[in-house]
Design a protein around this nucleic acid. Structure first.
Length: 292
DNA sequence: CACTTGACCTGTCCGC
DNA sequence: TGCGGACAGGTCAAGT
């Protein structure tokens, strides 16, 4: 599920709801969802304050006053939801029934805060995880050194993008967009959307892209991600933000999950094929296949 | 080496 | 209604 815009939205929600509070306890409903020595909880988590919440690529970081951080990857179906235990059963609660039902059978970890709030880590498929690591290691020089640039930051330049793409000249462009060492944070939804906007067929070979193609892709990636953050991300099935709300980007999607519906540009039905092992949506008339 | 496939899990949907 | 198979926002290791 969660790609860059979804994790960014969760981060912003948690900053509003949980910053400054102390973690008073943690329940591990699924032990494997916490991929660190459980003893570390007592030493570096319980009694620590949340002093910052950050995102890098698709990873969420909750920095604690103990100089340790919770590092969270939501993978396909992970959710981080904050619930105010004082309010959730109140009549007319804006978030309706879902958060009133937590914990549910997908709840893997519960984090208690001293503001009578609880953070639920829900994850149907159990691919997601939480690790506890020293905050100082969660930098681009250390933990994130293999990751490519953040596409919405200044160090994501056209030249940098081109150089990283051309490290994989024989690969299909879609596979390379999904490679987190090239650009960080793009997943299946935004790869398809960016390729449509720049009129490039996802199976095009990287080495056959022109400078114009690369420039167009560079611009498309940034505009798609910005629009999605603006819309609170995409909810295809499971995704919800820290308040338990869905994102609305898919109402604006050009191709993702629009197979058999007409292309907004030319009217030809969008098709769904398989590229790099992933379901891939495109317009066969608007998106040119570039092979040398 | 470069690239593709299978595995990790749970749930849902579709065809027979 | 039941059952098998394919598929789902991600990322590795193993295979070709």
């Amino acid at each position: 599920m969660p790609e860059l815009p979804e994790v960014e939205t969760v981060k912003n929600g948690l900053l509003n709801l949980a910053l400054g509070y102390e973690i008073t306890g943690i329940n591990l409903l699924n032990a494997n969802s916490l991929q660190s020595d459980k003893n570390i909880l007592k030493t570096f988590v319980f009694g620590s304050k949340i002093i910052n919440i950050r995102r890098r690529a698709k990873l969420l970081m909750v920095d604690l006053s103990s100089h340790y951080s919770l590092l969270i990857h939501l993978k396909m179906t992970g959710q981080i939801v904050f619930v105010d235990l004082n309010n959730r059963f109140a009549a007319g609660h804006p978030n309706d029934s879902f958060i009133n039902d937590l914990p549910d059978r997908s709840t893997r970890i519960e984090i208690m805060l001293n503001n009578n709030g609880m953070i639920f880590f829900n994850d149907q498929r159990k691919f997601g995880w939480v690790k506890i690591l020293p905050t100082i290691t969660l930098t681009d020089e250390d933990y994130f050194k293999k990751y490519g640039p953040e596409p919405l930051m200044d160090n994501f330049s056209k030249t940098n993008f081109k150089r990283n793409l051309l490290k994989h000249p024989k690969s299909k462009i879609k596979a390379v967009l999904l490679n987190q060492t090239v650009v960080a944070g793009i997943g299946n939804i935004y790869a398809d959307e960016s390729l449509f906007l720049s009129k490039i067929h996802p199976e095009s070979q990287v080495s056959s892209l022109t400078d114009k193609n690369i420039e167009s892709l560079f611009v498309s990636i940034r505009s798609v991600l910005k629009l999605s953050i603006d819309k609170g991300g995409s909810t295809a099935k499971n995704y919800i933000n820290a308040e338990g709300k869905k994102g609305s980007y898919l109402q604006f999607a050009q191709v993702f999950r629009r197979q058999d519906q007409p292309c907004f540009i030319c009217g030809l039905p969008i098709v769904k094929i398989r590229v790099a092992g992933r379901g891939t949506h495109l317009c066969l008339r608007c998106q040119k296949l570039l092979i040398e």
